[in-house]
Design a protein around this nucleic acid. Structure first.
Lengths: 341, 341
DNA sequence: CAAGCCGTGTGAATCGTTTCAGCATGGGAG
DNA sequence: CTCCCATGCTGAAACGATTCACACGGCTTG
């Protein structure tokens, strides 16, 4: 129903080839003709049909971004970094939310493949779905985001999460904490596992044993999950109860904080909390959260640049970028009245 | 380069029409042929080219959502509501962020038009761009989100913001506050204007004058904007300084809170704050925020349902839905020591 | 036994754009 | 005057899937 390039051509009294030229290489068309064509385009309200162009061109002007949790500000910050690179390049971003569910992830990847996106940025769920492999086999660039590539045949942009976990744990150990909890999801995400490993290593080095490390795995990596974990901690006998927690992300840390406050446990005096990601809301929490900061926006923009480079082809070399996290100390882990150095 | 339907047909020894039938109406193909074709599809790794299908079909399997600020959790919650309706319907969601900038909004709308989306959900910037009108003229359904339609010729899903503003203000007035600030952006968004009007009306009714209402317009409707406004308030002489603020959204309320805390102003004792939207983080703030709650997810899902209905055609009637907001009282506006009833 | 029907499958037209070989036209160089 | 080239435009092929009229057997039916 909408006007096509043929209608424009007819109305301007030229051939379709000329209209296409006006659209794509205006310099080869004489000024007079160009004006006439542009007039017709405006008069008819012509809008190029991207499907047709794309069918001819073989690929679209879009890239896909698949995140684990769109409600987590960490990912919207990442998305903004991606957008800042991708839009100026004339590409549109299709933002998908997998909710950490492999089926949703696969479904989204299928759609992106059908759309013939130029490439996909993804923070995948724990197990890498075959859909991801098949995308790559089809020659569609895939860059892993916040997750290290398993081999040198793929780009990835991640953060040294072992270090991040270690920073968090060492900070608590220095503060005199000995019984520490690590709160991460049960989904088996490698990022989370690495954070755990960093914490564990630090605890072992400081105490000579890891018995002191309690690992809790709430169902989901959200505020609700944090609350769930905190409730379990509060339910423990005081003799075995940890005095501090490292959370695998800030949402869970906020959940832990909320539940502790609700149960009358004072933070940080009776229980210290360290989060991860350092989202903006961490600093604004009831008790401002100590957190492991990642360069969120830069993570996204760097990944997007790598993707565009790979999509351009021509001597692209795969890069596995690893950023260094930094610990930001705030109120939630301030030195304890009772213990400490 | 990827396998086309023709390759599949050849490999399975059937015509392309038959392959298409296997894909779209499997029941008209005999079981034996179907198996053979499916085998060929799997063997070749065939993925349907959506552009080609769409070129023929005339419209795509996508809808667009344009929001003012992707970093505002209010909008991600809305987006989730949209997704919950749209994905099960077999449609993909293209999420766009206008950052409250008309140029970005227009650019996104152009892209969506070229993509031939089934429809667009949008929280528009202050002035309605001509691009929006031209979309509608092209027969593409547009549903306004969190913004009332100006006429009965369009669907919209909004919240009674005059009421919301009134609820917030009456609450503060009951608590004994007289000099009240309204903190909203300078962008001229009608939603914000309506919240202001509600506050103003309540103040006038309670005090007989509106002199007591101070309106501040930070540049942006974000945490930074809130901080900016708070700094100005703190800089005022105590005699004229407001004792409470209604903020046009929770991000700004959080910013106000942060700045007040930083400047040593006690909340709520010296300064009370009411936010708007009731995002999850409002309850988790340093001082839990009183806020005007909107049904965020439902806003999105309702709008999406209206959009799908309109896109389906056949006797669609435009609906201007208005939800009622509810005030959720928390710590940031608890009764003052000094004043109050 | 002719007619009609059902179940399967074929093949060509079609969607709207891009691209490219090629055709006029006219002007300048030789 | 002829040759050549540049400029500006044309027209058709191509992209890949869908759809529809139609063909072909084999059956039922009257």
């Amino acid at each position: 129903m909408p006007a096509s390039i043929r209608d424009v051509a007819e109305s301007a009294g030229v051939s379709v080839g000329t209209v296409s030229n006006v659209l794509n290489r205006p310099e080869v068309v004489s000024a007079a003709t160009r004006e006439r064509v542009l007039g017709a385009i405006a008069a008819l309200g012509f809008v190029r049909n991207e499907s047709a162009r794309q069918l001819r061109a073989g690929s679209s002007r879009t890239v896909g971004l698949v995140v684990l949790d769109i409600a987590n500000p960490f990912f919207t910050d990442v998305a903004r970094g991606v957008e800042d690179v991708v839009n100026p390049a004339g590409l549109a971003l299709i933002l998908c939310n997998s909710d950490d569910r492999p089926e949703k992830e696969s479904a989204h990847l299928d759609v992106l493949a059908e759309q013939r996106v130029q490439g996909v940025l993804i923070t995948p769920t724990a197990e890498l779905t075959p859909h991801l492999q098949s995308l790559r086999r089809r020659g569609i660039p895939v860059v892993l985001l916040d997750r290290r590539a398993s081999g040198p045949d793929q780009c990835s942009v991640a953060v040294d999460d072992v270090l991040g976990g270690r920073l968090a744990a060492e900070h608590l150990l220095e503060r005199g904490h000995r019984r520490i909890a690590f709160i991460g999801g049960a989904s088996g995400l490698p990022q989370v596992q690495e954070r755990h490993d960093g914490v564990e290593a630090a605890v072992r080095e400081a105490t000579g044993a890891v018995d002191e490390l309690l690992t809790l795995s709430p169902e989901v990596l959200t505020v609700a999950g944090g609350r769930e974990a905190a409730a379990r901690i509060v339910g423990m006998p005081a003799s075995r109860r940890p005095t501090a927690a490292v959370c695998a992300n800030d949402l869970m840390a906020l959940g832990v904080l909320q539940e502790m406050v609700r149960q009358g446990v004072r933070v940080p005096d009776e229980f210290a909390i360290v989060g991860y990601d350092d989202i903006d809301f961490a600093a604004a929490a009831a008790v401002p959260l100590t957190s492991v900061r990642k360069p969120r926006q830069e993570l996204g923009s760097r990944a997007a640049r790598l993707l565009l480079d790979e999509a351009r082809g021509e001597g692209h070399v795969h890069v596995q970028e690893v950023f260094e996290p930094v610990l930001v100390v705030r109120e939630s882990s301030r030195v304890r009245r009772t213990g400490g150095r």
